[in-house]
Each structure stands twice: as C-alpha cells, then as structure tokens.
C-alpha cells in the first residue's frame, strides 16, 4: 500500500481531507454549501476545455473556478439566493458532458473527474495541493472572525466604515481554487463529500465554532484514511466508498 504509486495519491488526498471540511464549515456558515458542487463542475468543465485546447487540465480547471469565484460578485444582485451556484453547476455540468461526448480526448478525463480518480494523482498534484493547503488552512483561520462577523452582524463592516468585499471576495476565490484542486484530485463527488458531510455533523454536534472546525477536519481525515484503505483493499473506486462511509458516519452521530 505504501509504494510510491499509492503513497503520493494518499498524501495528496490527506491534505485535502484536512482542509476541505474546514472550508465546508465556512461555506455552510454562509449558506453556500452548494458552492462545492458548483465550483467542482466548473473546474471539471475548465479542465476538459483546457485538455481539448492543448493546455494542462489543472490550469484550465483552476482558472475556470477562479474566474467563477471572482466573477460571481459582479452578478450578485441578479443571482441572489444561491442562484449563482445553481447556474454554475448546470453550466459546468452541461459543458463538461458535451465536451466528453464530442471529444474522445476529453471522454477519459471526464470519466475520471466525475468518478473520482484519486489513484491517478501524481506528484504534480501533490506539489500544488500541499503548499495550497498549508496556505489556505491558516488563511481560513485568519478570516474566521471576519466571516463570522459578516454573517452574524452583517452591519458590522458598514458601522465600522470598513469594506467587506475584500474578505468576501477573498473567501470566494479561496473556495473556488481549493475546490478546483479537490476536483482534480478526488473527483467531483469525493471532494463534495468532504466539504459537505463533516460540517453537517459538527454543525449539529459541536459545542463551539473552534471545536467544530477541529472536529470537522478530524472526521474528514479519519474518514478519508478509512475509505482509502477499504477502497484499496476491496479494489473499489475511491470516491463512492468515501461518500458511503461519510454518510454512514453522519447518520450514526449527527
């Protein structure tokens, strides 16, 4: 199991299993959990588009997600109430399926992205994911107070004559890029399972915000390790095993 061929994918996924549940807590705080699916589909479409255009899929995926994350604020009045994420999800899915259906080159990668292709992650992914997680986890901790204030006391920034947009746009961009990396590594649904299920459990069970963030990351990483071992041992695709395991844990303790 610990040959390089499995160790690198394992470590890459473990970094994301620590970071994604924390990101998910903030998305849930902002009632934006649908963003996980939306950015994942946009990233998948961007990756396929890049592949067809002769570019590296990772760059296309991250670029598309970053563009969607940064751009959604420009349409915020027209796309209130989560409509932005629903449209991103639909648009990303439609484009990805059309590309996979019409471009043989895109078909294989499309299947990998939507099925969950953790075992195909190479050292290139790890070189992106590890520094990104080392950067994004402390950044989220630093943004925590501002994001909580923006949610609980939305007038706080106005009253202090401070602009809220750098915090909110910064978070959007961080979420988009993290979810794009997760999609490239764990697949669309594997990433979504880690963003959605651990935060759902801790929002019901945790005693405080800080303990919730820690617990969420712990559930994500333990679930990830267990799913990795089970999927490898039983020769099953990783994404569905992870999703089923987290659902079972969630139903048991949430």
């Amino acid at each position: 199991m610990w040959d390089d061929i499995f160790l690198i994918p394992f470590l890459t996924g473990l970094c994301l299993a620590l970071a994604l549940p924390i990101l998910g807590c903030f998305l849930r705080l902002r009632d934006e959990w649908l963003a996980a699916l939306a950015y994942a589909h946009v990233a998948a479409a961007g990756a396929l588009l890049a592949l067809v255009g002769g570019m590296a899929p990772a760059i296309g995926g991250m670029g598309a997600a970053a563009l969607a994350g940064a751009g959604k604020r420009f349409f915020s009045k027209r796309l209130a109430g989560g409509a932005a994420f629903a449209l991103m999800l639909l648009g990303g899915w439609a484009l990805a399926v059309l590309l996979a259906a019409n471009q043989p080159l895109a078909e294989r990668l499309g299947h990998a992205l939507f099925d969950g292709q953790l075992y195909f992650s190479g050292s290139d992914n790890l070189y992106f994911v590890l520094p990104w997680c080392l950067f994004s986890i402390p950044l989220l901790a630093w943004l925590s107070r501002q994001l909580l204030l923006a949610r609980i006391y939305p007038d706080y920034f106005h009253a202090q004559h401070l602009p809220a947009w750098p915090v909110l746009s910064g978070f959007d961009l961080l979420a988009a890029l993290t979810l794009a990396l997760a999609t490239m590594t764990l697949g669309v649904m594997g990433g979504f399972a880690l963003v959605f299920v651990p935060p759902w459990i801790v929002f019901r069970r945790a005693r405080s915000w800080h303990s919730g963030l820690l617990l969420s990351s712990l559930i994500g990483s333990v679930g990830y390790v267990a799913a990795f071992a089970i999927a490898l041992g039983l020769d099953q695709p990783f994404g569905p095993v992870l999703a089923l395991l987290l659902i079972a844990v969630g139903l048991l303790i949430a």
Partner: peptide, 27 residues
C-alpha cells in the same frame, strides 16, 4: 468615529455551533 450597531433582526445563529464566549470575542 467607531460605531457599533445592534439591528432589530436577531442574528442568524440557529444551527450554528457558536458559543456565547465566541460571540463576545467576535466583537
């Protein structure tokens, strides 16, 4: 001038794992 505003609407804390101590620390 530093202003602080308590609006009429109750803060949306239902379902949120936030303790009283953490709320005070926020502000």
């Amino acid at each position: 001038l530093r202003l602080a505003l308590q609006a009429q609407d109750a803060p949306p804390v239902d379902g949120l794992p936030l303790s009283g101590k953490e709320l005070l620390a926020l502000t």
